[in-house]
Nucleic acid binder design. Structure first.
Ligand SMILES: [Mn+2]
Ligand SMILES: [Mn+2]
Ligand SMILES: [Zn+2]
Ligand SMILES: [Zn+2]
Lengths: 136, 136
DNA sequence: ATTATAGTTTATAATAATTCTAAACTATAA
DNA sequence: TTATAGTTTAGAATTATTATAAACTATAAT
């Protein structure tokens, strides 16, 4: 039952030693069948639920940040007050539901940009992902 | 030199009485030749600079919020830590420079979306504006 | 014009997400 | 096995924003 090597590898390549806490965080993030869109608050609740091992909020923040820097998570800027993260690191778009505050993936080729402006001189496009705000 | 009626009207239709402080805020926002992209911190600096009349930060926050609700300002979600606002209330797109943290307008017809996904059942698209992140 | 009242301004406190700190612990290399 | 560099954690600090409440003011009624 110790199939943690993938998580350990992600931690190592993120510059982190594989500790019990970090492996648990990695499991909660990456051992999923579907994309996980989350805030740190939500991840903290998932990890520190009833009876489970406890991981401090500081460690969750630090590990999420390291995974983001290493490219294993993507940050989605959606909300004024909270950071959202995404386990889907491919370039893709999102619906953001203003009512439920939930993100949903839109496949990259579901959006076609037939005209894109040229960036100002000396600047390069780093990222072009569309967030479509929806509501009832 | 008292051509403040436009500001007074904006305040009134935002549900605010035209006070000295609010008129000064409105002047700083709307008496401009070009679009103004700003954070509350920046607006506060502009208004409360050397020797000028003082307006409290709370009043600036409240007035910006009222103008936003009334549709005279638009909020741009760009940054994790600070809210950005825009005096250009037409539907349009932006470059966001990750280095300087400045927004630049992109005219609406400089971006062509030839394919847009259908929103989930029961949901409507509220907004589709593109933010293109740029850097050196 | 005077006054009563509802609305406003302001300093300051509270809140909430995030980051920092430093002491107790632990993975790992020697 | 041990030394050391790295880690975890509770709690403190930070920072943008929002709330509070007392002193002020625009406005409508007299
Ligand atoms: Mn905030
Ligand atoms: Mn923050
Ligand atoms: Zn996604
Ligand atoms: Zn703009």
């Amino acid at each position: 039952m110790n199939n943690n090597q993938a998580f350990i590898d992600k931690l190592r390549t993120s510059g982190l030693r594989p500790t019990k806490q970090r492996i648990l965080i990695a499991k909660n993030l990456f051992e999923r069948s579907k994309t996980f869109h989350f805030t740190v608050e939500k991840l903290n609740k998932v990890i520190n639920k009833k009876g489970s091992a406890k991981v401090s909020l500081a460690t969750i923040y630090n590990t999420v940040e390291a995974f983001t820097k290493a490219g294993y998570l993507k940050e989605i800027l959606t909300s004024k007050s909270k950071s959202y993260y995404d386990t889907n690191i491919k370039s893709h778009h999102h619906f953001y539901d203003e009512g439920t505050k939930e993100l949903t993936d839109i496949d990259y080729n579901q959006v076609k940009l037939s005209k894109v402006p040229v960036p100002p001189k000396g600047k390069k496009i780093k990222n072009l992902e569309v967030i479509i705000r929806i509501q009832k």
